[in-house]
Design a protein around this nucleic acid. Sequence first.
DNA 1: GTCTATAATTCGATAGAC
DNA 2: GTCTATCGAATTATAGAC
Lengths: 181, 181
Amino acid sequence: MTAGAELLRRNGYTGTGVKQIVQAANAPFGSLYHFFPGGKEQLGEEVIRTSGMLYLALFEIFFADEPDLIHGIEACFASAAETLRETDYADACPIATVALEVASTNEKLRIATADVFTAWIEAGTEKFGKYGLSAESARLLTIALVNSLEGAFVLSRSLRNTESLQVAGISSVALARTLLP
Amino acid sequence: MTAGAELLRRNGYTGTGVKQIVQAANAPFGSLYHFFPGGKEQLGEEVIRTSGMLYLALFEIFFADEPDLIHGIEACFASAAETLRETDYADACPIATVALEVASTNEKLRIATADVFTAWIEAGTEKFGKYGLSAESARLLTIALVNSLEGAFVLSRSLRNTESLQVAGISSVALARTLLP
DNA sequence: GTCTATAATTCGATAGAC
DNA sequence: GTCTATCGAATTATAGAC
């Protein structure tokens, strides 16, 4: 699962072979179809769902016991930029690459990515509501934040710099200030 | 080229076969390697570069003879949302799917996507400067706009709705208002 | 649970006639 | 320029022994 998650986020679903996964995991090939009788698709779906929940937990950490919404947002994008630099621009969003690949070709995997994004949006909406935002504003800010993060990941990985993530942080903070009471 | 562009933006680079492209184009298979001796990689690179320039031209149209920056931004995102709905959430950004796929695996194609994004950012920076923004503000707004658009495309294709694009329009307009003199 | 061999298909790419 | 046949390697998945 861990090896699969790393390869899928970096090379995508069709760009990753099952043999490549078991080799990276130092796992016996026979075990793959023992634990994942559904094959590559089942492995892919479980990777998407668990990676999505792990990433959500990461988000929760940034705003846990954080009294300041603005500082929480800044920390999010700064941390994302640091991870990109440290991993040579490989480890961005754990599911975006697969999400774009399968959106028009594999309905089961597409739904898995949609469930993850929905969970993120609902969690963010609830969290931001605690900073005094209305339900509508909290949802707007959450989606705008995910938009900026995902888009900045695309630019960052392609251009191999973190300017887009810095801009995403600035623009998200600016939006938060206009929504904050 | 046209068939390749459509398949690559929808299914990605590794997810599209060369036989699939020539079949979709109703083209003779032998012609592919006649016109693209470099094979799939050459075709992919040319598709990325020409699609990127076509998309840039689309952007220029929205702001040509448009005296109001805010209305231009709103029209961009409204048009993107309409295209997504009309194509059953297939035709979003022509190069983002490939960009994420190849960022860590194919340097030649990665550079092609980077050149496209760089051209977009430079064109937007120049265009927005004409509305009275400083060079720094114009570049910030451009990158923020691309961030929001690319991220909203990911969410829109996965969730099969246009809420993320509406939010992207709202947040981009809000940012533009804070930067405008 | 794990191993090896292999089935069945598809992949990108090429050869050589026309 | 186009066509067909095909190559060699890769793909996912399975069979059957251990």
